[in-house]
């Protein structure tokens, strides 16, 4: 098994790409992350992470048709690769194992909605 460690932000980006299916490009990814986190995510951060992920081979990209909105420039769409999926699953697996070891009484009386 390959062992690729994902950073927290990398994981979020990767998840967003997976969630957005074939609509994942930098701006939409940024918006997606903004939706779920209250961090003011900057385009530059997303870009550099995308660049890193692509280098690691976790995502691939291709240029799509030109759109008027962007001054006639094409969008670069991202897709998650097989190893990307593996990496996500691995991370999730690790997390869940850890979650499972936590006894229930630790979080007793807390629920996310009421935080």
């Amino acid at each position: 098994m390959q062992d690729i460690r994902l950073g927290a932000f990398e994981e979020m980006v990767l998840l967003s790409i997976a969630a957005l299916l074939d609509q994942a490009y930098s701006v939409s990814i940024r918006d997606e992350i903004r939706k779920v986190s209250d961090r003011n995510v900057k385009l530059g951060m997303v870009h550099s992470v995308l660049n890193r992920l692509e280098k690691k081979g976790l995502i691939t990209s291709h240029l799509a048709e030109a759109t008027k909105k962007r001054g006639g420039r094409r969008k670069r769409y991202f897709q998650i690769t097989h190893s990307g999926k593996v990496a996500l699953l691995q991370t999730r697996n690790q997390r869940e194992q850890l979650w499972n070891t936590i006894p229930d009484f630790v979080f007793k009386g807390l629920s996310y909605d009421r935080l």
């Binding site: 930098s26 001054g71 420039r73």
Partner: peptide, 13 residues
Amino acid sequence: FEDLAGDLEECYH
């Protein structure tokens, strides 16, 4: 360059 410029322009609008 191309997609980066495109992204920036989108954000600009």
